[in-house]
């Protein structure tokens, strides 16, 4: 399921971009430059490095791989995988597949929206969590499910989902102390 996209405030993304290490792109560019059909693998590579598609990185890829920036933007905004703005440390993917929907996945998104104070597709101010809806995680028999990183949590209700988030918050605080 496509995530509702928020328009990025240009100022914000520029300041983040200046701290980027664009040298990280060199291997990726070497691997894909000149090959036909390299647009999506390049964008996927950039996102793997930075977690999103920073403007500065897109400019560099455009220059060195000879791709048009407007084509890159067109592809990046077409596919739901690509993000044009930074995301939180933990991405919460709430499954809204058919099986999860009939088992009340909507209630989980509602509860998380309230607990995190963000809407679907947004990131918390402390850059800790991004809340997303996804089409199907393929664990329909555990419905309703959500996924954070590689971990899947199944047979949830709103309260249980909020508890998962609380546990992560506590773990993060312990690590910081």
């Amino acid at each position: 399921m496509r995530v509702e996209r928020k328009l990025v405030k240009n100022q914000e993304s520029q300041t983040v971009d200046t701290e980027l290490d664009l040298g990280l792109l060199d291997d990726l560019l070497k691997k894909h430059t000149g090959k036909p059909g390299n647009m999506i693998p390049l964008l996927q590579g950039v996102q793997n490095i930075y977690g999103y598609l920073p403007r500065a990185a897109l400019l560099k890829v455009s220059r060195e791989a000879g791709l048009h920036l407007n084509d890159m933007h067109g592809v990046a905004t077409f596919y739901s995988q690509f993000r044009l703005h930074p995301v939180g440390k933990h991405i919460i993917k709430v499954c809204h597949g058919t099986a999860c929907h009939v088992q009340n996945a909507g209630g989980i998104t509602d509860a998380l929206q309230e607990a995190l104070g963000v809407k679907d597709g947004e990131t918390t101010e402390d850059m800790m969590f991004t809340l997303e809806s996804v089409a199907c995680l393929g664990c329909c028999s555990l419905a309703p499910v959500l996924m954070i990183g590689d971990e899947t949590f199944g047979k949830l209700d709103g309260d249980a989902a909020v508890k998962v988030i609380k546990d992560i918050r506590i773990r993060e605080q312990q690590q910081n102390n």
Partner: peptide, 18 residues
């Protein structure tokens, strides 16, 4: 890269072409 329509064969090929 996450687009349901790419299950359609001509869309899928466009996607492979980048």
């Amino acid at each position: 890269a996450g687009a349901f329509v790419c299950g359609e064969e001509t869309a899928l090929m466009a996607s492979v072409e980048g």
